[in-house]
Every structure is written in structure tokens, then in C-alpha cells.
Amino acid sequence: MSDVSLTVNGKRVSGSTEDRTLLVHFLREHLGLTGTHVGCDTSQCGACVVHVDGRAVKSCTMLAVQASGSTIVTIEGLANGAELHPVQAAFKEHHGLQCGFCTPGMIMAATDMIAHHPEGLDEATVRAELDGNICRCTGYHNIVKAILAASQAMSKGSKGRAKQAA
């Protein structure tokens, strides 16, 4: 057993857990954050993607104790109160989800993708960067569309803010 201290969605949390507990299970079972899902055993489907210290990683392939001390954002922490994150809004607007199971991981991966491509995204890049997220419902068509739309909206938003600041 080890003590695990994390900042999750802006809140400091701690708990004691077996060393073998995966981060995803700590989030789901100890913190009740069940938006993060487990869809495979081989670190491929990406349903479990969360942000750990600003990077989108697979929480099924990391021990909770390994993450201790880190800052974590899960799907539950992405929106700003009632205001959806632009990626969440785009997934809804463009029908980028059906059963919803892969969706949290998709959205967390997509927000990271957009953040790491300040130059903007094209369809080929989005498809390549989604390599670690599997969806069985949508054929990816509308996921790609949603991410491209969100990327555009966010770059407009940041340019807009930059203008205001100037």
C-alpha cells in the first residue's frame, strides 16, 4: 500500500491504495470519476486517456502511485463550469460520438492534439494523431470533423484574445 497525492481537476486529493492499482482504477473507484473508461488491456484503445502534467496519456498504463505528485485533468474537469470546452462543444455539434464510450478519451486526446499543433491541423494530421484512440461507432468521419472545427474555433479564439490584449 502507498499513499497517493494528486491534483485532479484542480482539487488536491489523496488516498491510500495498493501499489498495483492503475491510475484509471484510482480515478474511477477511489475518486468516483467514472468518465474515464477501460476498453482494452493492451494500451491501444485510448478510452482511458487523461492529461497528466499537461500531456495526454493512457491512465490504464500507469500506476496510481507512479502518478503521485502529478496534476491530472480528466473529462470531468475539462469544461469551465457550465461552459463546455470547445472540443466538447464541437463533438456535440458535429455528432462526433455515438455510444459515448470512447468519447472521453477521444476528447482528451483531441484537446492535447490541438494544444500541440498551434500551427493548426489538417485532416491527415488529425487522422494520424488519432492512432491511439479507437472508436467502433462513428467511422471517425465526424470525430475528425469535430476536431478540425474545434481547432479552428480555438485558434480564432486565441487570436481574438491576443487582439484584445493588444
Partner: peptide
């Protein structure tokens, strides 16, 4: 290698 999430770790 792998996918973006794997490359981060």
C-alpha cells in the same frame, strides 16, 4: 513509435 499517448510516456 506507438501512438501519441505512448510517445509521451
Amino acid at each position: 513509435i506507438g501512438d501519441p499517448a505512448v510517445r509521451y510516456k
